[in-house]
Design a protein around this nucleic acid. Structure first.
Length: 487
RNA sequence: CGGGGUGUGGCGCAGACUGGUAGCGCACUCGCUUGGGGUGCGAGUGGUCGCCGGUUCAAAUCCGGCCACCCCGACCA
């Protein structure tokens, strides 16, 4: 049971989104700042969401054939330097260990910012034959990147993630794997986190250092800015060549492996907050909520208390027996109104109110977190509480997705003139995704970024349109791309 | 790393301009009261005012320096 928390109102979302976000994260007790700059503490309610994400995503990852392993947090400095683009991309943000055991180290060690190098070093030793391919590993771990500017969950120096690394015999198979994982992420984030996505390829400028192609899932936050929620990279043979991952194929030819890597991080928690939260607090999709149902007992006199608590307890037990994550709010000395607000702040999807009246009538009150006002409340027969709760939780999951989907749809705009695009992005807020034809030239992308601060978020895959004219230079453009201001 | 802001009980703030030995709200403890949308009343606990130095009989307050954190930008999951 949580502690009673302070009762200050949160900063309204519409007034100051960044303040609102910090308020929610801390008052819903998801996380707190640490004594070390840029690092954060995951509190139990926040970590529970990560655990729910891990449990389901781990299942989905394993279903594709990958297995979990664990590689060390410390990597020889020289490893990072083996792939030119990779070191260029990560060198500025690595933390380096120079001393150990009271002595200066022979070779400095970096705290992993990602594990491509150490994993591929091991791959080179493990892979000799096409019979050993594909090799598909995943690890759940922490990584460290010395970020200039940090925000709880969205960008912290240390963060938790899973990173998958695979090696394949052919380009085609590796490319297929890249897209398979992209689809695993899309399915998981949309179905579990109820966050609708834009899916596509990254531009060269936004590509992972060392990758040949990067694919992304992008979501829209409540303030109209985009957030990259996961990436899947086709690495080609870049790392295989740098780390000499070679195998003999069926015709006894020595070949370099084709590789992928892919990951999602605890940033997803920030996305959940920013997509679903409102001025009352957090709103959690039932599938990842640490507590899915809370039972709030209501009573006056001691004799009422006994009856209500007995009934509330048996209802909570029945829900629990049906595999729902339940809490019975038995805290004393707090009014029901206080508890209602408290659980709303914490984002619990379904609240059950139970008092003497309900026991007398055989019905209790359901209050849904996804709806507002009178609409949020309904009655359910006590005898059917388990079935009804499951049904309603399913509806809440869908309703949160539908609300977010509508918000996303309303924030996607197509432009065919640069001045109109610029006007939209420069306007107050300037949020949302702009869908425009782009020729693919970095110069045009740079112009948009410099003049509007929006970046290319994704280029949808497999566009079948007739093509059009680049919104910047007017030359012919095969594909359209999404641009947005991003976190 | 540039711009802005803030550092005073656990949290949010006042006090600073005009130096005089620290105050308010919330939280916390105890008692009563109340309980279907943040109950009410009373009594309490808790602070060397971010750090270092200077001015002064006297510094939260004035002066100098430093540090930390937050927000906005550039860079990035």
């Amino acid at each position: 049971m949580p502690e009673k928390q302070d009762t200050r109102k949160v900063t309204p979302r519409s007034q100051d989104f960044a303040e609102w976000y910090n308020d929610i994260v801390q008052r819903a007790e998801l996380a707190d700042y640490s004594p070390v700059r840029g690092c954060m503490v995951f509190r139990p309610d926040g970590f529970a969401i990560w655990e729910a994400i891990q449990a389901e995503l781990d299942r989905r990852i394993k279903r594709t054939g990958a297995r979990n392993a664990y590689f060390p947090v410390l990597i020889p400095m020289s490893f990072l330097k083996k792939e030119a683009k990779h070191v260029e991309g990560f060198a500025p943000e690595v933390a380096v260990v120079t001393h150990g055991g009271g002595k200066e180290l022979e070779e400095p060690l970096v705290v992993r910012p990602t594990s491509e190098t150490i994993i591929n070093h091991m791959f080179a030793q493990w892979i000799h034959s096409h019979r050993e391919l594909p090799m598909m590993l995943n690890q759940w771990c922490n990584v460290l990147r010395w970020e200039m500017r940090t925000r709880l969950f969205l960008r912290t120096a240390e963060f938790l993630w899973q990173e998958g690394h695979t090696a394949h015999a052919t380009r085609e198979e590796a490319e297929r794997e890249t897209l398979t994982m992209l689809e695993v992420y899309r399915g998981f984030v949309e179905e579990y986190l109820a966050i609708p996505l834009i899916v596509g390829k990254k531009s060269a400028a936004e590509r992972f250092p060392g990758a040949e192609e990067t694919y992304t899932i992008e979501a829209l936050m409540g303030d109209g800015r985009a957030l990259q929620c996961g990436t899947s990279h086709f690495l080609g043979q870049n790392f295989a060549k740098a780390f000499e991952i070679k195998f003999l194929d069926e015709s006894n030819q020595l070949r370099f492996a084709w590789q992928t890597s892919w990951g999602v991080s605890t940033r997803l928690l920030g996305a959940v907050v920013m997509v679903h939260g409102d001025d009352q607090g957090l709103r959690l999709p039932p599938l990842v909520a640490g507590t899915q149902v809370v039972v709030v007992p209501i009573y006056r006199k001691p004799e009422e208390e006994a009856a209500v608590m007995a009934s509330a307890r048996s209802i909570a037990e029945a829900l629990q027996a049906a595999d729902l994550r339940v809490q019975l709010d038995s805290r004393e000395g707090l009014t029901p109104g206080f508890k209602f607000n408290d659980w709303e702040m914490r984002g619990v999807p379904l609240r059950i109110e139970l008092g003497p009246r309900d026991i007398a009538s055989g019905e209790l009150v359901f209050a849904r977190r996804d709806l507002k006002g009178a609409e949020a409340k309904s009655k359910a027969a006590i005898s059917e509480v388990t079935v009804r709760a499951k049904t309603v939780l399913g509806q809440i999951q869908k309703s949160l997705f539908d609300q977010a989907k509508a918000a996303l749809a309303s924030q996607i705009r197509e432009f065919d003139s640069y001045s109109a695009l610029r006007k939209q992005l420069e306007g107050e807020g300037g949020g949302g995704f702009a869908l425009v034809y782009w020729c693919g030239e970095p110069a045009c992308e740079t112009k948009i970024r410099e003049e509007t601060r929006a970046t290319c978020r994704a280029i949808p895959i497999g566009q079948s349109g007739a093509g059009g004219k680049c919104i910047v230079c007017g030359k012919s453009a095969a594909d359209r791309a999404y641009f947005a201001k991003a976190y």
